[in-house]
């Protein structure tokens, strides 16, 4: 564990907590894309299948349970909790996210490390996570400005994988084994997709106004 990876995990945890805070306390999911949340639930479900077969550390298992639990509970809140569901922007959140799932699955079947069930699904989860934010970014552009909590949620979610890239660089130079190039590329694509959001975030958000 190095400082970059710990910072990345904490940033990721913070993004999930910010979203849960928003949904649970003010019972609102305005500006949040349910489709992105559904994609993230699939990402964690397919990435953490090894939670039962391989034990890495208490921290690792604990964080996996947190991410699994939070992503599914956010989807549940947005779908079935009456008060929260009412604030969901169904008309605007129309990105065909199932069109993202199939190409990622095909790509994982074609390009992977090892052709085993767990490995292909793990690779699929990497590809899917790289594009999972798209419905949220599209919703963002449609709803124009968003509230601070949603802006911070997206900022933290985008930042965590950027910190992971620093972690991969650090591990490359300091450890005998390497991180697979598929992980590198998926992580880079994912972080680059946030580029224009980061641009507006710093321009507007730091300037004291909401993100537009």
């Amino acid at each position: 564990m190095n400082i970059f990876r710990l910072a990345g995990d904490m940033t990721h945890l913070a993004s999930v907590l910010v979203l849960l805070l928003k949904i649970h306390t003010i019972k609102s999911c305005a500006g949040v894309s349910l489709r992105t949340q559904e994609l993230y639930a699939i990402v964690f479900a397919t990435r953490y299948l090894d939670i039962f077969t391989s034990f890495v550390s208490v921290y690792n298992t604990f964080m996996k349970l947190v991410f699994l639990g939070s992503s599914f509970s956010i989807v549940w809140y947005m779908r079935y909790h009456k008060a929260v569901h009412r604030t969901y922007d169904r008309e605007q959140d129309t990105f065909r996210h199932w069109f993202l799932v199939l190409p990622c699955l095909v790509l994982a079947l074609l390009i992977h490390e090892k052709f085993t069930f767990l490995e292909v699904l793990w690779t699929f989860s990497l590809y899917l996570e790289a594009v999972a934010i798209l419905p949220q970014l599209v919703l963002l552009q449609r709803t124009r400005n968003i509230d601070n909590l949603t802006g911070q949620y997206i900022f933290l979610l985008g930042g965590y994988r950027g910190l992971y890239i620093l972690n991969w660089i650090y591990r490359y130079f300091t450890e005998p084994h390497f991180v697979h190039w598929i992980t590198w590329i998926a992580g880079l694509v994912q972080t680059l997709l946030y580029a224009d959001f980061f641009y507006y975030y710093f321009l507007r958000f730091i300037g004291g106004r909401g993100v537009e």
Binding site: R5, S57, H177, F178
Partner: peptide, 10 residues
């Protein structure tokens, strides 16, 4: 030659 890739990340 680096060893096999790691799988200890989230």
């Amino acid at each position: 030659e680096k060893e096999t890739p790691i799988k200890d990340e989230l």
